[in-house]
Simulated scan of single mutants.
Amino acid sequence: MAGTVEARMQEKGIELPQVAAPQGAYLPYVISGNLVFMAGQLPMLNGEIQVKGKLGDDVSLEDGQKAARLCGLNLIAQLRQALGGDLDRVERVVKLTGFVNAVPDYAGQPKVVNGVSDLMAEVFGDAGAHARAAVGAGSLPFGVAVEVEGIFEIK
């Protein structure tokens, strides 16, 4: 039987991608006490990067938001694996940090990162409300448009 979070995702038509393998020498997550620290996730769908480029140049705000949302879907997929498949163990999304590959004078990072923030509210309800940073970056791994990392409190 699907848990409450899984049922909410199913009701909203939210499907999680396959869990991506780490792209370097690091762990995809670390559980310390009642916190899960998630490594940065890229806008990948089943092993393929979906959105490359720079905001303010060749990536639109809408595509940046879609990239951030996809990073969030990958965070949730990785989190589900970390929790043995039980997303109902999530007490709260504590903090998200979104990195936006952008031209130097781009100032729309908060709007881009709303793509992942909105997803967390959809999936986790009130527990999806979180602290956040939206940071501009001169470049990101593999030329992706967005990367997002997160900290989650668990039962």
Rank of each mutant, 00 (worst) to 15 (best):
Leu61Ala: 00
Gln81Ile: 07
Val146Gln: 08
Arg69Gln: 15
Ala7Glu: 11
Gly138Cys: 04
Val93Glu: 04
Gly72Leu: 01
Gln78Tyr: 10
Phe124Gly: 13
Ala121Lys: 15
Gln10Asn: 13
Val36Asp: 09
Leu75Val: 12
Ala137Arg: 15
Ala21Val: 03
Ala77Thr: 01
Gly85Ser: 00
Val51Tyr: 12
Ala133Met: 09
Ser117Arg: 15
Ala20Pro: 07
Leu70Gly: 04
Cys71Ala: 01
Ala7Asn: 07
Ala21His: 11
Met9Lys: 07
Gly128Trp: 11
Ser117Lys: 14
Gly33Ile: 05
Leu45Gly: 06
Gly150Phe: 01
Val135Ile: 11
Leu55His: 05
Gly13Lys: 03
Phe99Tyr: 13
Val5Ala: 08
Leu119Asn: 07
Arg69Ile: 02
Met9His: 00
Asp88Tyr: 03
Val112Pro: 12
Asp105Thr: 10
Arg132Val: 03
Met120Asp: 13
Glu122Ser: 14
Gln78His: 13
Ala145Val: 06
Leu45Arg: 15
Asp58Ala: 02
Lys95Asn: 13
Ala82Asp: 01
Cys71Tyr: 05
Pro110His: 03
Asp63Met: 13
Gly136Cys: 07
Gly64Ala: 09
Val148Ser: 05
Asp88Val: 00
His130Asn: 13
Val112Glu: 12
Pro104Ile: 09
Thr4Ala: 09
Asp105Tyr: 07
Glu149Ile: 10
Glu62Ala: 15
Pro110Trp: 03
Gly138Phe: 14
Glu6Phe: 01
